[in-house]
Structure formats: C-alpha cells, structure tokens
Design a protein around this nucleic acid. Structure first.
Lengths: 225, 225
DNA sequence: CTAGGAAATATCCTATAGGATCTGAATATC
DNA sequence: GATATTCAGATCCTATAGGATATTTCCTAG
C-alpha cells in the first residue's frame, strides 16, 4: 500500500461556528421571522449552550446584515425590505449580476458553460414528484438561486461572488412573500443568459441578465401592494 | 417656550462597540499589521477589558473581512492582498464606483454636486503647512478617500455605498505600501469626474471614473514588484 | 378608563474561572 | 546536525456569575 493521503482534519470548527450556522438557518427558514426580537438567553437555552457563543454568532450576523443590534436592548432579525429598499437591492443586482454575466461570458471554461446551460434547462422541471403549489415554488426558488450563484462563481472574482451572495441572503429571506414564480418565463430568461454566456458574448450576456432581473423585479413588486 | 425637542440619548453603545472601533483603528493604523496574530488575552489586558467584548468585536471584524479566524487558534489580521486579489479588487471598484458615478450624475442635488466639485479641487492643496513626503501623502490619501466616499453617498443607494466602503477599508490598509500619489494627475482625473457629475452626464461620469480607477491601478501596481 | 409611577422580573453585557487545545522550547534519538 | 517527541506555559473557547439596564406588570390617582 502506497503512503496514504493525509487524513482530513477531524474538526476545525467551534461551537460558535455551529451556533452561527444554526441561527442563520433559523433566519432563512423564518423560524426567526423578520423583525423578531432575538432573546439571547432563551436561544442559548434552546440550543443548550451558554450565551457566549450565541453572542459571538450574533455579532457576526450583525456585520452580515441579517440581524440588527440595539445596544443594551439586544438583537432583532433584520426587517423585511421596504419597497424602496427592494428597489435599491435590485438596482444593486443589476450592477453586480450584470457584471457577473459579462465576466462569466469572458472567462468561464467549457465545462462551466455547459453546467450553466444545464442549470438553465433544469429549472423547467424542478419538482421531482409532480408536486404543485408551495413545494414546486420552493424547488424552483432553490434552482433559481443555484443558477445565479453558479454565474457569480463563474465570473472569477471572489469579491463579486461574495457581494452577490450577501444580496441573495437578503432576497432568500423574502421568498415567502413573493408571488409564485412564472417558471416558463423565467426558464426562457435563464436560457437566454446561458446561451449568451456559452457564446462568449459579454454584451449579450449582460443585456439578458438585465432583462431577466428587470422582469423579476416587476414580478416581485406585487408583494409590495 | 415651545415644547422642547427630546433630549438626545446620552449613550447607546456598549464596551463591545468601543472595542470594535478601537481594533478597527489599530488595523487601519497598522499597529496591528496585516498578517499579525491577534492575541485576545493580551489585547484585552491592553484595553483593560475582559476577553468577552474583544471576542465579539473580532467576530464582527471577521464578517467584515478585516480579520481571519482559525478555529481554536484564534484570529489574525487579514494579510495584504496578493497581486491577483488587488486586481480583483480594482475590477470590483470599476463595477461599483462606475455605477456610483453614473447614479450620482443622475441623482445628486445641486448642493452635493457643488461639494463634489469642491472636493475635487481641494485635493490639489492637501497639506496645510507646506508639509512634504509622507504627511502630504497621508493628507492626500484622506482627501482621495473622502472624494470617493462622497460620490458613493451621492449615488443614493445604501447597498452600493456600503459595498464601496468595504472595498475602501481594505484599500486603506494597503496605503502604506503604495507609491506616493501623483497629485496633479489625480486632481485632474477627479475634476473630470466631478464635472461630468455636475453636468448630469451619466455616461461621461462613468467613463471618467473608469479612467481614473484604471490609472490608479497602474500607479499602484508598482507596489507588487 | 387612562396615564403615570413604582416595583418586579427579564434580559443584556461583561468579568471571571476553568477545561481544551495550541505553540514553542527543551530534550532525546538517529 | 537533523528530526522526532515530550512537556510546560500560553492561548482559546465556553460556562457561569453578577451587576446594569430594559421591559413588563401592578397599583394608584385623576
């Protein structure tokens, strides 16, 4: 037997890391709903840890923008976006994801481009068991996020990828409040983006991404009454 | 006497907030240099606080990207950017600050536009006491950052402003390692940006900002050998 | 019934203590 | 001399305790 590859490090995380991930998930799943006060002591009891790692996790989440701190009064989940904030976020998406599409068209390798095309196609048939309504919507939302995340990664700039991820975390929290997606229309929009990226056409990729985002914005605006 | 306006809240921050700001300043001033290990206990002793608010401040700074954590081994100041990272950061600046210039041209009010013009002019005479060399460089760097920050604010999108601020924090850490600025050239570039913004010419504002950033990139590349 | 104040309780924040793990120096082995 | 092992001390992480502050509840006066 040749020399074995080194064993993977068994553990390089702490309780604080676990708590951070747990709280993030609680927020994403709306167990901690937007605007909710976060009771540190109660949460620590539920998680069966002391308040110390909970506080540290919340400090990180504050800088992530997912929670807000009021000194001496504790933390709360960041509220749902106002209509104005929603518009600002889409403006920012236009800037960042437009650039991501452009750079992906310029830089992505063949394998990645094929994967982007596959993801654009997969979105049409998201529900594996003929599910309908909310489960279909959830599956679609997940695939939509994967598609955008894939392009963000394909752009080849970690700062851009992280910036888009931050926006998507906020967007994800809002998914319960958005109207059910129009999957056919979105799929076509995704495919136009993917085809432009595959063709290496930077300008067309950006235009298609802008088109998609602007239409998504209009679709989502119904949630703001 | 009409009803008095409510008195300002006397204090709405905690020791942890103070520690966060102190550590940020230590990093910005290179008292904690890039790559340095951060000894939590020693730092807590120096600051005459317990380790608790220090750990919380570091948790926030981790999410800010200014420090990195290695579980069970503690924190270190994020290292200086590699050449590749520096290039990625400038690509990101082109995207974000290009958009900021465009939006500022479209949205800024007359007062703000005048202020932008003033700041572009002020950068020519940064040293109040005929100082030379490093103090002039420091003063220039500060005014340069103010100019960019002003435009980011004038863009009217808080997400964009925050994104640019994050980039600038990283850039600021590197200022000790960059060549002395060519103030005359930079002033001209700033003025071109400011004039385009004042004129409300979005495209020209973005082009001028791109031009400025690309030239700044070239000037700074000497620091990478 | 409403408003204001006081008291009780809960929560937040920080210091301290202690166990787990890491780091670096000293020592042993080849 | 180079490398591996051991060990002591330092450091990190988390739990606990206690004081400060905020929030909630209760009571009283108008």
């Amino acid at each position: 037997m040749a020399s074995p590859s080194p064993l993977p490090r068994l553990r390089r995380s702490t309780l604080g890391d676990d708590v951070y991930e747990t709280i993030t998930a609680l927020i994403m799943e709306h167990t901690l709903a937007p605007g909710d006060r976060i009771n540190i002591d109660a949460l620590a009891r539920q998680l069966e840890v002391s308040a110390t790692p909970v506080r540290e996790a919340l400090a990180r989440l504050e800088s992530d923008g997912l929670v807000r701190k009021r000194a001496l009064a504790g933390y709360a989940v960041s509220p749902l976006l106002t209509r104005a904030e929603f518009m600002e976020m889409f403006d920012m998406r236009l800037v960042l994801e437009g650039a991501a599409a452009r750079w992906a068209a310029a830089r992505a390798g063949t394998d990645t481009k094929q994967q982007i095309l596959r993801e654009a196609t997969d979105i049409v048939a998201p529900a594996p068991e003929g599910a309908d309504g909310w489960p279909a919507h959830a599956a679609f939302t997940k695939l939509d996020a994967q598609f955008h995340q894939l392009i963000a990664g394909a752009a080849g700039n970690p700062l851009l990828r992280d910036g888009i991820a931050r926006l998507h975390a906020h967007l994800h929290i809002h998914r319960l409040y958005f109207p059910f997606a129009q999957m056919g229309t979105t799929a076509q929009e995704h495919q136009r983006i993917a085809l432009a990226i595959e063709a290496g056409d930077e300008q067309q990729a950006e235009t298609a991404m802008h088109d998609h985002l602007n239409r998504a914005r209009e679709r989502h605006l119904a949630a703001f009454g």
